[in-house]
Design a protein around this nucleic acid. Structure first.
Lengths: 200, 200
DNA sequence: GCCACTACTTACATCAGTGTCAATAAGGAT
DNA sequence: ATCCTTATTGACACTGATGTAAGTAGTGGC
């Protein structure tokens, strides 16, 4: 019984979630098994069961972790783009990258795989929190109503999600550049900004 | 050894694909197993292996079947809406319904699940064929360039896909009506039509 | 009617993911 | 140093999905 090291529950959970996220992005939802995740952090699958209770417990924690990570990325970037006179394109790229590379698209696949409605909650909550931080500020500047911000966010997120899943293949098939969906989203946002600030 | 009936290979394959599609839409990609599909059509899983060679063979056939069914639905409806003076909204609803109810969203989940790039091909091809039928006609009427039709299609499809996966939960979370994404897509298409036919 | 073909089945083998349990040992508290 | 908590492990059982092999029985052609 070779016990390598004794980590705190927080350390173990954190390492496991990081490994699970990497696995999810690299190889898809199916590859996120107790055995695979445990192997990545040099533990046994029984150890993960000890920390997360069950496989679905790990899945739920992973969903929360992913949603938080993705939204934090976007949130930070939105703040930065504000300071540096952000363009619509920057926001678009951030949202699309979040779904394409940060694992939000993979999370969607996860939900589809399990058919588990609960897995949807954390990411929706995270997006909701993100919008709640942005919308009131925009509204206070008199640029957009909160509902308008919500609508734009919905469209942008759904488009980014779709693009992460089928964008590459479909664009190629239609002889469009890979960035076609992003270009379109950028035009949409730009048009909304114009409409929102007619005096500019 | 109770043999119930003896079907032709075509009948067997057709029945199996129909059952698999129903299972996929009802319960998600994970539930489409040899046993479950076979049970639905009153056969054994070994029988499906006989007809499709392997589980992945069934999956590939299912992907092709789904892509064909969905695109045929849309194509028929587009033709009908042309005859009956189709509105942008009708086209939007058709595309969204195809992904939401006809199983195209489930198909996307399927691709994500398997991580199989091949599974993507049939639906992309089907969409490509659909656009190839529509775009030249539009172009010949002098309304849009083919590329413009391709761009609109890309945006519409990606948005419909995203909406099928997260639309319901996200709209609810943002206090928007379930139809918010469709409404947005409709506005987009309407704006394009205006722009495309300035003399109207 | 007889035969070849094959759709179909039953039984078994295999494998992967999940979960249980008892045993071990690391690390802190006293 | 001793004890107590618990992180960790190895071994095992269970389940479900996939695949194989051999045998059975419809169906069409002669």
């Amino acid at each position: 019984m070779t016990i390598r090291k004794r980590l705190s529950p927080e350390e173990s959970r954190s390492a496991a979630l990081q490994a699970a996220r990497a696995l999810l992005i690299e190889s898809g939802p199916q590859s996120v098994t107790l055995k695979a995740v445990a192997g990545r952090i040099g533990r046994t699958h029984a150890n993960l069961l000890h920390h997360f209770g069950s496989a679905s417990g790990l899945q739920k924690s992973l969903a929360e972790h992913l949603a938080w990570t993705v939204c934090e990325t976007i949130k930070d970037a939105v703040r930065a783009s504000r300071v540096g006179l952000g363009t619509p394109r920057e926001v678009v790229d951030l949202a699309f990258d979040a779904f394409d590379k940060e694992g939000a698209g993979a999370l969607a696949g996860w939900m589809l795989l399990t058919g588990n409605e609960d897995a949807l909650d954390p990411i929706v909550e995270a997006i909701h929190a993100l919008v709640d931080e942005i919308a009131p500020e925009e509204a206070s500047h008199g640029r957009f109503s909160e509902m308008r911000v919500h609508e734009e966010t919905l469209t942008l997120v759904l488009l980014a999600l779709g693009d992460a899943l089928m964008g590459a293949a479909l664009a190629k098939s239609l002889n469009l550049p890979r960035s076609a969906a992003r270009d379109r989203a950028e035009r949409m946002l730009t048009a909304s900004v114009k409409e929102g600030i007619p005096s500019e």
